[in-house]
Nucleic acid binder design. Sequence first.
DNA 1: GTTGGAGTTGAACGATCGTTCGAAAGCGCT
DNA 2: AGCGCTTTCGAACGATCGTTCAACTCCAAC
Lengths: 207, 207
Amino acid sequence: MAGPTRDQKLDTLLSAAAKVFAERGYHETSMRDLARASGVSLAGVYYYVQSKEELLYLIQTRNFEAVIAGMRVALQGVTDPIERIGRFIDNHLDYFAAHMAEMKVLSHEAGALSGEYLQKVNDMKREYTRALMDVLADVERAHGPAHLNRRVAAYSLFGMMNWIYNWYDPLGDVGVEMLSQNVCHLFLGGYVGLPVSDAALPRSSAG
Amino acid sequence: MAGPTRDQKLDTLLSAAAKVFAERGYHETSMRDLARASGVSLAGVYYYVQSKEELLYLIQTRNFEAVIAGMRVALQGVTDPIERIGRFIDNHLDYFAAHMAEMKVLSHEAGALSGEYLQKVNDMKREYTRALMDVLADVERAHGPAHLNRRVAAYSLFGMMNWIYNWYDPLGDVGVEMLSQNVCHLFLGGYVGLPVSDAALPRSSAG
DNA sequence: GTTGGAGTTGAACGATCGTTCGAAAGCGCT
DNA sequence: AGCGCTTTCGAACGATCGTTCAACTCCAAC
């Protein structure tokens, strides 16, 4: 019957903050808005967090870590490069659709951090980008060199996937599976230059 | 030997504002920052503009209007649906690369407007999106129904194109022509499902 | 040389911002 | 009841925000 622990209260705070940041934007949102939305007093927020910027930092890193960890698991043991890409896309979009507010904050408020906070998030970004570029290199090894610049292809894919906070409604008539399938088709069809059979797409084995 | 006209000074102001907004973000930028960057006093800014929000609005609409106008010209008289898409992409990326600051402000500060300002920009967005969707419908009429949701395809393309302010350097080793070619290949290869010959791409006739 | 409008400014307005701090409240323990 | 530690809060801090305004300069028109 114990009340919520300190970490649980911090999670609640971060979740409420992500929602408000996603709706109103980081800089438009005042700590007073945030206190109101999370049900604690203005000063109470500072018991759990050192600053407004740390709040944003925690939202970004915690969710980015989850995306990267999920990606590692999703790629583990998968050798076919095409399916590796499918899994990469699938993991990214699944997490995105399930945590729209947090991922919008991660995608859209990238420039709001500074100093050490910014550096750490940028490190994760570099790591994640590198992972995708490596998979793309695998694809080229297996299917011959693409007629596309690898960097442009990688960032185009990130663009497709990270832009969805601008238009996608997880509760609308386009389900997450369909979204992921479509992005896979779109990217793979364009990158490897040949139609991709449905059987090669990850959804068939991802339950 | 006449000095700059009122409109020219407004243009200079808007240009300076776009640069600062792109670098620091709209809400992080104070009117004092802006005055400093544009070389007039704080109060002087208000002689040309009614409010900070109008400043943002003017940047967004003027450039969006230019993109849409350019698109109309680029598509005029072109009947082949594949080439129409190529022209659409080409026009978008050309303008984007040539006006990175302004287009970053347009893409990234979409939610910073409100009221009538927001409504007018959203109207333009709807119009532009509709134009792309129409071209996609043309493609499907000519090449058979795509195995992709048209809305997902359209927004994925916008994602690819509008995301470039996060990574693309027009002065880097990837030229605008290469960028445009790559995005064309990536999208068309994935959308119509067959490799696109270079001859069908717009660059060959766009000088 | 005077008028009048366009352009520009320094100084100030009230509002709101992120953050701090001392005090009070809750609570397990003796 | 009384202690010590965590948690919460009202009130206030200085700073900065967008905006306003009266006053000033400049220059063409008369």
